[in-house]
Amino acid sequence: MIHIVAICASVLGFGCLCTAMARHQKDMLGRTLPSPVQRRIRKAGGALLLVALAIDMAGLGAAYGAVAWFGHLTIGAAMAVAVLKWKMA
């Protein structure tokens, strides 16, 4: 359902934002990325978070969807950190 799809977009979005940071790239990808690529990944991450918002508002209504979006961001961020910790291990 909508919640799952939005959470997926949120996890991917935060995953991108995390990978776009120099200090986490070694753990996430095993190598560092050049700056232009970092910027593009960061923009993609931000875009994915906005896609999650669009999914929420379209599927759940504007007000309800906006509230749910914040919750999806929280779950997405938490799962991205979980992935990071798993890759570090």
Partner: peptide, 13 residues
């Protein structure tokens, strides 16, 4: 239900 669980998990946080 979905949003209620999100509230709950945020509360746990």
């Amino acid at each position: 239900w979905g949003l209620r669980w999100l509230y709950f998990l945020s509360g746990i946080g």
